[in-house]
Design a protein around this nucleic acid. Structure first.
Lengths: 168, 168
DNA sequence: TATTGTTATACTCTATAACTATA
DNA sequence: TATAGTTATAGAGTATAACAATA
């Protein structure tokens, strides 16, 4: 056996020459991220992917994704909002919100009511079923939040929320 | 003029009844985010969108997006990496990386070299032109990073990097 | 004229599955 | 049989533009 480091899982040499004159550190923990380590955006993107996947997994039994959850939460707390208001508040394209509400409405979680004051717009409400469901979604989302806490630490999570409060 | 609060920009009444019995706080700063304020994922998502857009805008003159930048940076610092190694290290699907490299290769920024050691794989390198270009991309990315610093503060940015270091 | 909701299009990104050529 | 790269597909998300109904 060579004196060269062997990858723990694959048993493949961690580094070798390929005949093109370049070292090939194809073992993930040896690859230099270079400038990326100083970019907040890179860390945030990786974190966001982790959070997204944990959220989807934790709420998989109710089949609710983050954007659906955020829309229902805002509608639940502010019954009667128009689609424009929800879209602006959450930073979602109004065209995108149409499909999102279509899916929630077809599941009888949300309803659109024609506004009498401005007949162009809809007043958004949770259905009775939607209200019950949202309570469960919130319990599962709180469980997801505990996963975040376990991953980065209680104080770090709270600090993060304070740092990013200006974006909400 | 009514005594009711008027929206600063639109001059539209901030709150009104729509005849469906529900208050409609359709003014963005009056809408209650409810449980969302306690979710790290919501804040992170909003932050990530802001960062993404600022990055794309700051690097628009060179037409480079965050994922392209991260791939070129890693290839530049680790010449000879295989596609699999880059994909795993950056958390990109290997199928997605194919198209990403196609576009970089067609712009003569990156080249694939058939590996002699394992003829299934490619060794990735920057071209001379790619090396020069990456230096400019890095200068612009540093400028973007200063925008982040200006937005959340120097210390908060550094703290954020430390908190999220475990995801890079 | 401007706005709300809608439809449509295009492009990015994520997530798979399957194919090929190699190992 | 397993892996690297590729191709293809589907769904989510982003970014536009245009249209009908209404203001």
């Amino acid at each position: 056996m060579s004196e060269r480091a062997i990858h723990r899982q694959t048993g493949v040499p961690a580094r070798k020459r390929d005949g093109n004159g370049a070292a090939r550190p194809n073992d993930a923990d040896e690859i230099d991220l270079d400038a990326l380590v100083g970019h907040a955006g890179y860390a945030v993107r990786r974190f966001q992917i982790w959070i997204f996947q944990d959220f989807v997994k934790t709420l998989s039994e109710v089949d609710i994704r983050p954007t659906q959850y955020s829309a229902m939460t805002v509608i639940g707390a502010n019954p009667g909002l128009t689609q424009m208001a929800v879209a602006k508040r959450l930073g979602i394209e109004r065209a995108r919100l149409v499909h999102l509400l279509d899916s929630l409405e077809s599941r009888r979680l949300v309803k659109r009511i024609k506004s009498k004051a401005d007949r162009r717009s809809h007043a958004l409400h949770l259905t009775a079923q939607g209200t019950t469901a949202l309570a469960k979604f919130k319990r599962l989302a709180a469980e997801h939040e505990r996963h975040v806490e376990a991953k980065i630490g209680k104080e770090n999570r709270e600090h993060l929320l304070r740092i990013l409060a200006c974006f909400t």
